[in-house]
């Protein structure tokens, strides 16, 4: 009898969860009037799997009635106007150049890493009891002219005002 071996599904599980979080962030954030027309742009830095997920979504879904466009940035110089940018990076030094460029726009900056919520990102992914959650910095929403709903605030594990 040949019983073989069960194949492992190699999907990137975190990328799917992150993309779902990101879509929910857009539901509970309001951008200035000028950003409510044209395409809805999400920028992705250093996370191909997340970009692929978002690109797949962009084929069928709209965000706030706007077409979703995903842009991948390989350097801070490439960063252009985005509604939201996800910057993957292990250190503040790695993330900050992209964040700095993004601040030129009314862009919601999302990261994942210790300390990123202190002055770099408005939303930072954190792991709580093996689950992916998020913390938020309200001041950084405000500085980007973004209005955040109470729902997003209430579900955050930590809120910095």
């Amino acid at each position: 009898m040949s019983y073989g071996q069960t194949s492992m599904n190699t999907m990137n599980t975190r990328a799917k969860f992150k993309s779902m979080y990101i879509l929910n962030f857009t539901k509970y954030t309001e951008w200035p009037a000028a950003y409510k027309q044209g395409d809805f742009v999400i920028g992705v830095v250093n996370d191909d799997d997340l970009a692929k997920n978002l690109e797949a979504i962009s084929k069928t879904k709209k965000i706030n009635s706007q077409n979703l466009i995903v842009k991948r940035f390989a350097s801070a110089d490439q960063v252009t106007k985005c509604h939201l940018i996800y910057i993957a990076g292990k250190s503040a030094g790695e993330v900050e150049p992209y964040a700095e460029k993004s601040r030129q726009f009314n862009c919601l900056i999302v990261t994942e890493g210790n300390g990123m919520i202190n002055g770099i990102a408005a939303i930072n992914f954190v792991v709580v009891g093996a689950q992916l959650k998020y913390e938020m910095n309200k001041a950084l929403f405000k500085s980007q002219d973004l209005i955040v709903s109470n729902t997003l605030e209430n579900l955050a594990t930590k809120v910095i005002n």
């Binding site: 069960t6 194949s7 599904n9 599980t13 799917k16 779902m20 879904k61 579900l155």
Partner: peptide, 23 residues
């Protein structure tokens, strides 16, 4: 692998429209 794949299958079949509570 049986347990792991079950988890992955659930993620794969998740609708992107799910709200936070469901997520």
């Amino acid at each position: 692998i049986h347990f792991y794949n079950q988890g992955v299958n659930i993620i794969e079949n998740m609708d992107y429209e799910q709200d936070f509570e469901t997520l």
